[in-house]
Write a protein that binds this DNA or RNA. Structure first.
Ligand code: SF4
Ligand code: SF4
Lengths: 137, 137
DNA sequence: ATATATAGGACTGATTTTATCCTATTTATC
DNA sequence: GATAAATAGGATAAAATCAGTCCTATATAT
């Protein structure tokens, strides 16, 4: 199962997909969760993280909710995943060299640095504009 | 931490690196574990998996141990990782479409299929011959 | 005032990761 | 044949992470 994104990240992408679809309109957690099949209280945690990352903004109180802050071509899968999971990497030594004392001589370490960079690039290339365009909406 | 390979997979790569370095020679679990800084009993489990996957072969009894079965250009990081972790994918729906009932209409699903294939390709391109060559041995 | 929303932290159960340990089996050597 | 050194494989367990809930505080439209 490893090397997979978490349910939280998958849910976060659904949230953004939902809000992008509203074209700047607002939606409540209840709405997002129900429409995107996400447990309500879990969805609440997730949109909070998305808010802190600046991908969405929140309005409190009656008539409150969340709305997207950027246009679909300015948000990528990488943005959303890293908003909820933090910086991603293929091996622990990429983010923290000191985590492994073999790193200085390790012949595999550079591979993970390169593969991580390549994945981040690819995830970054999938903007929501592109995702929707390629799926035909 | 998600999207990372496990310690088990990292250890497995160290095991193969060790055996490749012996150029067809044999080594015991004790030897591999001690030289590659892997807990002994964990290393024992790992080389068993590598044996089942056909990457190494085992000899039982006194003077027994493990030796590599292929040349370094015929073993890639992908081979080793999938030997211990099974087939990898970036999201659950890639390996098992039925795991998510949104899959048929999901605009993101094709992204994960494509990204998974791209990662598998890149991991497959890192043979141990290449890893050693690029590290300068 | 009240009802409806988000903010945020504490908590929990389930699952996975990261091992350890034990018994059985194989085999070289004395 | 006995013995010592090795792998095979299953059972078990501690720790960490994941997935999700719950509760209180705060904001705001009506
Ligand atoms: S052994 Fe090499 S690849 Fe593995 S964690 Fe250490 S530095 Fe990274
Ligand atoms: S929502 Fe889409 S991307 Fe996420 S698991 Fe389901 S099919 Fe896959």
């Amino acid at each position: 199962m490893s090397v997979q994104i978490t349910r939280e990240a998958d849910y976060a992408i659904r949230c953004i997909l939902h809000l992008v679809g509203l074209d700047g309109g607002m939606s409540t957690v209840r709405n997002i969760a129900d429409r995107e099949s996400i447990p309500r209280s879990f969805a609440a945690k997730i949109v909070q993280k998305l808010t802190k990352a600046g991908l969405v903004e929140s309005v409190r109180g009656v008539k409150g909710g969340f709305r997207i802050t950027r246009s679909p071509e300015e948000i990528s899968l990488l943005d959303v995943i890293e908003a909820v999971e933090g910086p991603i990497s293929m091996n622990i030594c990429v983010l923290d060299k000191k985590s492994c004392d073999r790193q200085p001589q390790c012949p595999v370490h550079p591979c993970w640095v390169e593969i991580t960079e390549s994945i981040r690039e690819r995830l970054g290339s999938y903007t929501f504009e592109r995702i929707l365009r390629e799926s035909g909406r």
